[in-house]
Design a protein around this nucleic acid. Structure first.
Lengths: 197, 197
DNA sequence: CGCGACGTTGATTTGCCTCAACGATTGTGG
DNA sequence: CCACAATCGTTGAGGCAAATCAACGTCGCG
């Protein structure tokens, strides 16, 4: 059993695949290793791929009209990531994707994915579930941004991503939470002080 | 051709359905008319249905820990709406759904939908596309909340929903934008003044 | 070692909220 | 159909959370 074969059964462990099906998928995905700070996708590019992170960390971010970066998603171990809005229509990206650590990931193109979906119908369910999960987490973020203070959002962030803080820069977290680095720094200070007393 | 039959071909006009298929769908959907201010779903309810609006207006909102309402989505003509996070898992709602005008809509249960998806595979694509559209609009909202001021969000709101303003109360719009009614009022005043000068 | 990137802290400003009062509009019963 | 109440929208004063601007530590790396 090859290493790649092993990773395929790991990625799709929710469904049962024959050896043949596994090999088909393996053929359509490409393994890539990149150093920290590499760009995978830039706004205006046509989005052909989605990515599965084996280890390391990717993030999607977008740059607003004032030139500020906003992090939309971090992807660590076992997460899928892309600019999905563009990926679904094979349209132009509005987001950027980059590695923020040395990262090993697998990529699959929209056309290869469509072929696999036809050949292996169970994958339809697999990707639909991933989609529903992503949808739910987006909704959760909207609720959070409407109803929570920056401090509350930070606390729930470190609960959701308990180990991410060592991996990512302060300003990445700040841009995910929708605040400045200065504000994040003050929030951390406040939390540290409260937990001492 | 019955009225209901007509509406079915209207709802699913993106795909081609045989008369038989149309009738199958018709059997699984229920037409409902409700007066303004009626509740369709409350938080904690198990979510069994999604809804297609024929005419009128529905909204989903959630109530945060401080008791404040936040509008997540308006649904007018030809929109689908539900608490999708819960609908997908047949789980408990965190949102509420109500009519904010006299509304005619159709509802379909998860189990009936699953049956239809099996019987009419094209529907899989139809609903996936709807899903992708909803996903994109959620993403757009996250971007907006991260990068735009209340005034900018209001301006893009009235562009996106040009005719909704007559139908919905000020405080519904405010709760959608994540601001207070007072702030919305001031924003409107400011815009009116600028357009005069 | 020294430079650049990153994080922290302080002073000030700003956008929006809160609280309060007051018009405007809508709906309802007599 | 009018009168009155309830609901909704507007305006003002004051406050607060977070942004901005600026300066200064700190850490890692060539």
């Amino acid at each position: 059993m090859s290493t790649t074969h092993t990773i395929i059964s790991q990625i799709f462990r929710d469904i049962v695949l024959s050896q043949n099906e596994s090999r088909m998928i393996e053929d359509k995905m490409e393994r890539i290793e990149l150093k920290k700070g590499s760009s995978l996708l830039q706004a205006q590019d046509t989005v052909f791929h989605q990515y599965y992170v084996d280890h390391g960390c990717l993030r999607t971010y977008f740059i607003d009209s004032a030139g500020k970066e906003h992090t939309i998603q971090f992807a660590i171990n076992d997460w899928w990531i892309s600019d999905y809005t563009a990926f679904f229509n094979t349209g132009k990206a509005i987001m950027n994707i980059e590695t923020i650590q040395d990262t090993t990931f697998y990529k699959i193109s929209r056309s290869n994915m469509d072929a696999l979906l036809l050949a292996i119908p169970q994958l339809e369910t697999f990707f639909r579930k991933k989609m529903e999960g992503a949808f739910a987490s987006f909704q959760k973020r909207i609720l959070a941004s409407l109803s929570q203070t920056a401090k509350e959002r930070y606390l729930s962030f470190i609960t959701t991503y308990p180990n991410i803080e060592q991996s990512v820069k302060n300003y990445h977290i700040a841009s995910f939470l929708g605040i400045t680095t200065e504000s994040l720094s003050r929030i951390r200070k406040e939390i540290a002080q409260n937990s001492v007393s």
